[in-house]
């Protein structure tokens, strides 16, 4: 046994002490509240997506002539294909919801402030990547929503000043939706974005480790309680419990509300009622409310402001002298987000 330990230790020269130091960062007490564990949730769901995604890719064919049929095969014929596809779809939905909730938690607790500004920017990039992965994902099914969603998105890119035309051509692999488009979406969805997300998550976590988690104190905290607890085994147990709970929820959703297959893409007919996935309701409504140029420029402006928020926040606090200005802006933004989403959800057009 000692010889085996020596053999391993010689080849992997990491001591138990070093390993403990690496994995056992003290966790601030507020993370005992589960609400603050939302950051780990999308990471966990991302792993589910990688696993189910690899399995789905075994049968999926990214070509207009065969994509829809391959998804139908996965859903209706492959053993447990319906389950894996439904898991993939629901995990995407929950992942996006978790990323948004995590970001709101970070925003409203002002955890993005100095010195953690760059991690907010990385978080924003992760949000963008997650939304893009969701969008390219449902574009692969090649049902009506897939085709028209991709067409609309490509034309939105086209409206971006200066680089719009090139962006559209790069996205579609041509001037219009063509036989190269699906394979391009597939590579973006299954290779480029997951790799980017993985790298960003590594940097995101590295920053958290370097700066430590923002410590929050609550009025009802017992005064003499220790301010930290151990990552291992205390926090990891919480994360494992969340993981278990997520699997139960995912499995239930996949079984009760499995992923369906709409009508096959018809480039000649836009269906009478067409809506994107719920996380794009806001931009969908925004596009209905304003002219294309204004909608695209204002969306770019809002996203730019979100990326640079840690610095804008500093400026606004100095300008107004109000420390809570970001909270009020956040409340306004959230209400607008919810309002536009609900509006789009309840009307036919």
């Amino acid at each position: 046994m000692t010889r085996l330990a020596d053999w391993i230790n010689e080849r992997i020269p990491v001591s138990g002490e070093q390993l403990r130091e690496l994995t056992n960062e003290p966790v601030p007490n507020h993370l005992r509240r589960w609400w603050f564990c939302l950051g780990g949730t999308p990471a966990y769901l991302f792993v589910v997506q990688i696993f189910t995604g690899i399995l789905l890719a075994l049968y999926y064919q990214p070509a207009p002539a065969s994509a829809y049929e391959s998804v139908r095969y996965i859903t209706e014929e492959a053993a447990f294909g319906w389950y894996l596809r439904s898991m993939h779809k629901w995990a995407a939905t929950l992942m996006i919801a978790a990323v948004i909730l995590h970001q709101m938690r970070v925003y409203f607790t002002a955890a993005y402030r100095r010195p953690r500004e760059l991690n907010w920017v990385i978080g924003m990039a992760l949000l963008m990547c997650t939304l893009l992965t969701g969008f390219t994902g449902y574009s692969l099914v090649f049902e009506q929503l897939s085709y028209w969603g991709a067409t609309v998105a490509a034309n939105i890119s086209d409206a971006v000043p200066v680089v719009g035309g090139t962006l559209k051509t790069l996205l579609l692999g041509g001037a219009e939706y063509n036989e190269h488009t699906l394979s391009r979406f597939f590579i973006i969805h299954a290779a480029i974005l997951p790799t980017t997300i993985t790298l960003l998550v590594i940097v995101h976590i590295a920053f958290i480790r370097m700066h430590g988690v923002t410590e929050l104190r609550f009025d009802d905290d017992p005064p003499n309680e220790p301010r930290h607890f151990n990552f291992f085994p205390d926090h990891i147990t919480t994360e494992l419990l969340i993981g278990l709970l997520l699997m139960v929820v995912l499995s239930a959703l996949a079984t009760i509300l499995p992923a369906t297959l709409g009508a096959k893409a018809d480039p000649l007919t836009t269906p009478e009622i067409i809506k994107p996935e719920w996380y794009f309701y806001v931009s969908f409504r925004w596009l209905k409310l304003f002219s294309l140029t204004f909608a695209v420029l204002s969306t770019g402006f809002i996203l730019g402001a979100m990326f640079l928020w840690p610095w804008i926040d500093v400026g606004l606090r100095k300008l107004t002298g109000n420390e809570d200005i970001s909270v009020w802006i956040g409340v306004g933004g959230t209400l607008l987000l919810i309002g536009l989403t609900v509006w789009e959800a309840v009307v036919t057009h």
């Binding site: 028209w148 609309v152 034309n155 007919t269 836009t270 009478e272 067409i274 294309l292």
Partner: peptide, 8 residues
Amino acid sequence: PHLGCRVH
């Protein structure tokens, strides 16, 4: 002409 869907 807005975003390329088909009118009816």
